[in-house]
């Protein structure tokens, strides 16, 4: 079951690398959040406990509802153009993503021979980290950077579940809070940036350099 979910997660990464609409990114974030919530919920279906349910519910709340709707709100409020502005062609980006994922999946299976880990969640998480960074590098819009950062964070989450069987719940919750605060601050910053700069592209921020 974990493997199926991880593969679904990986497929969403392909979608995120070809879509040219900001809405698409938000939808992927929702989808990934849902997968992660289910993934965390799985162990607790076997032996149910009231504390075990806290993490999936919070995850669902933050990653599926709060953050995506907040980003949508920012897009509406600030009237950001709905298309992303890639710096390289989408097909090249896709090929880069595929190449990276191949390398990661193969090397993960090699690593798995010597250590105890779930190959597919591990490799999917790792890929998400790489692709989150790629999104930040190859896209110009600040709001897309936020999405890239969130993809990266999802990757770390998945990666964590694959490596250690269970991270302590408090740490997971803490990370969630961090991410939420970061996104929140980003929204505030974007609002402030609008009053100074015309666009929402990182190249504009280069003018801030001393």
């Amino acid at each position: 079951m974990e493997n199926v979910l991880s593969i679904l997660f990986s497929l969403s990464l392909f979608y995120v690398s070809v879509t040219s609409r900001v809405k698409g990114y938000v939808a992927v974030l929702r989808f990934q959040g849902l997968i992660l919530s289910v993934l965390v919920l799985l162990p607790f279906l076997k032996n149910f406990s009231i504390f075990g349910i806290i993490l999936p519910i919070t995850l669902l709340l933050v990653k599926v509802i709060l953050i995506p709707s907040y980003i949508n709100k920012i897009i509406l409020d600030l009237d950001i153009k709905r298309v992303i502005e890639p710096t390289i062609q989408q097909i090249v980006f896709l090929l880069l993503v595929i190449a990276t994922m191949i390398v990661i999946f193969i090397s993960s299976s090699v690593i798995a021979q010597s250590t105890e880990l779930n190959v597919i969640p591990f490799a999917s998480g790792f890929s998400a980290i790489a692709i989150g960074i790629y999104i930040i590098i190859f896209r110009k819009k600040l709001i897309v950077h936020v999405c890239g950062f969130l993809v990266l964070e999802n990757g770390i989450f998945l990666f964590g579940t694959a490596v250690a069987s269970e991270l302590p719940m408090m740490i997971e919750l803490g990370v969630l809070l961090d991410v939420f605060v970061v996104v929140f601050l980003m929204g505030i910053a974007l609002n402030k940036i609008r009053s100074t700069f015309e666009g929402f592209e990182v190249t504009d921020l280069g003018r801030l350099k001393d």
Binding site: S107, V110, I111, A130, I133, Y134, I136, I137, F138, V202, T203, L205, G206, R207, K209
Partner: peptide
């Protein structure tokens, strides 16, 4: 030393790749 943050993230990615390669 670039003005754009994306270059720095690219540098980080390169370093991480090198580290992972060495570790691997």
């Amino acid at each position: 030393s670039q003005t754009d943050i994306r270059y720095y993230i690219g540098f980080i990615l390169i370093i991480i790749t090198i580290y992972s390669l060495i570790a691997f």
